[in-house]
Design a protein around this nucleic acid. Structure first.
Lengths: 329, 329
DNA sequence: ATGAAAGCGCTAACAA
DNA sequence: TTGTTAGCGCTTTCAT
């Protein structure tokens, strides 16, 4: 593999001139440029980013932390990040942490070791202390889940308001007994969405029962099935369910179906996230859409700004209620 | 940010000794090692991979080409790759090509530019000529889809045999009119699976009709719905459907449901891939499971071997028929 | 417009 | 066991 030296030699110029051609600097005579370009072609030369990166002390690589790549929630956000990254000539590395601190550490170290120029965390299980520590000396942005007390800039939606809208929608349809299938209270968004749920119930003076609030450890299908099974065993069954993720809601849908009840006739269901599969269920799922793509773009832009050394402010984006069959008689 | 020089100075040793400590070389007196370790701690030193990588002329980064990260088909394979990568102290970059040649080029260039040490392609739409070209001078492995005529090593399953098994299963259940919802014939796996379908029909002397073979451009839900709609409009309807992907099959399921027919009572359905959602449908989906995780591990091991300069041979892995509700009365 | 040379941070060959 | 030094491939400053 040829290097810049050999190109310079073959073209009969200095390495500095070759570098100038490579970087499209203006101050090169067209004739010289041509000589260099020919040499590059003849030698099949490809510049090594290893040398360039060391010299410029940058890697042009961004890290994106997610708990699991199989979670469809993240796909659109990632596309947004990718889009902005590519426009700005950055690459990005999708880092699956599996909520495993060791994995997390690998990626934190990549930033510290200059293998990456910055990091976007979308992992709600991330070690906040370590993340804050990293952010002290390196560019870090949080996307979706964030630390209320920390100083790391974030992009998110108003989770409380979104939950409030979802529950209000169910109330307006005439439901009075509304259950909440929620995530673990250790997550900020869980607490925020519960608040929104409670606010809607209070506003309409509806009954509030602890047994209608079910907390799951994971946001997956099985937990949705299980949660719904529990709710259906209650003496006083809910007539509507708000699940804080579509996968949970799809699990609930399945269990309602299995038990012989109908959605939305017997029980209405609202999910959260508008994952692509939420449109493939039977019935299709009413859900809260987050502006995923925009969120990804915003996060990436914030990070790149950070890397450039600029100050960036946190941003709260709008959500939208998507009404589909699971709440339409 | 401190560098190796400053550590050496603070510890009162040479940079070579610091390097030895960093790389756990044996020939360092415990006392000296301690001095260096203290200096590292005091200065909060983190070695720069930029320097190390240039010196070692390696990036320890692997590229994984996929058409779309939102395709659940790839998740388990990726986990396999990740696992092996981490064990061997490699990182990997998930590269979404969107079947866009320009994107593809970015990633090919990363390998040429030494920003990545090798590449695993899982993209059936990849430009085979360019891939073969790259493989001439750089480590490349194909996973799942491959080039029959090329010389690039690959991991895959026996697609023809898998399709044969799926169709035979439907035949054994008493089905005689079996439709095939297939992908585009430009893909090798499409042609291979069609062959398996035809072989099973031939073996049992079953009718073969062109109108029962439906080719889709994309393997998504909407195409499955559409394909099934076409099949249901035929005068002679099939009593069973083999779809070459679960997302297609789930679309077919939906359409059958909408049309008032029952699965498997009226029409039995078999999918392909065993994506996680195939277990969440109603009824659950009979499908062909590929050893995804193993496939990923195998591909990664092959690539790392390639990078080390070893010769590697292509590998064909076993598949498995997973019988679930969509074919069980 | 072009070249010479320093240096980014690290590893390893060689010397001591 | 430790130090000295060259050099990985590139960019950029300073001369010319």
């Amino acid at each position: 593999m040829a290097n810049i030296q050999q190109v310079a030699q073959k073209a009969g110029v200095s390495v500095a001139t070759v570098s100038r051609v490579l970087n499209n600097r203006a101050s090169v005579r067209p004739k010289t440029r041509l000589k260099v370009e020919n040499a590059i072609k003849e030698l099949n030369y490809e510049p090594s980013m290893l040398g360039r990166n060391l010299r410029n002390s940058e890697s042009r690589l961004l890290l994106v932390l997610i708990p699991s790549i199989s979670n469809p929630f993240y796909t659109e956000i990632i596309k947004g990040i990718e889009n902005i990254a590519i426009i700005n000539n950055y690459n990005f590395l999708l880092c699956e942490t599996d909520s495993n601190p060791q994995r997390e550490n690998i990626y934190f170290n990549m930033v510290k070791n200059k293998l990456a120029d910055g990091l976007i965390s979308m992992d709600p299980t991330v070690n906040m202390q370590k993340l804050n520590e990293l952010a002290e000396s390196h560019p870090v942005i949080q996307c979706s889940e964030y630390d209320e007390d920390g100083t790391i800039p974030y992009v998110t939606i108003d989770n409380e308001l979104a939950a409030y809208h979802a529950v209000k929608h169910l109330i307006k349809l005439g439901n009075e007994n509304i259950a909440l299938i929620n995530s673990d209270e250790k997550y900020l968004y869980t607490r925020q969405r519960r608040k929104g749920y409670e606010r809607a119930l209070n506003e309409f003076h509806l009954p509030f029962r602890n047994e209608w609030m079910y907390n799951c450890e994971q946001l997956d299908f099985e937990n949705g099935v299980h949660a719904m099974r529990m709710l259906l065993q209650l003496r006083e069954k809910p007539s509507a369910v708000f699940a804080v993720s579509d996968t949970l809601a799809i699990g609930a849908l399945k269990e309602i179906n299995v038990s012989g009840l109908k959605v939305p006739g017997d029980i209405a269901v609202v999910g959260f996230d508008k994952i692509s599969f939420s449109n493939m269920t039977n019935p299709t799922l009413t859900t809260i859409a987050q502006p995923m793509y925009k969120m990804g773009c915003t996060a990436a832009n914030m990070l790149i700004n950070r890397i450039k050394g600029n100050k960036v402010e946190s941003i709260v984006l709008d959500h939208e209620l998507i009404i589909r069959e699971s709440t339409m008689g």
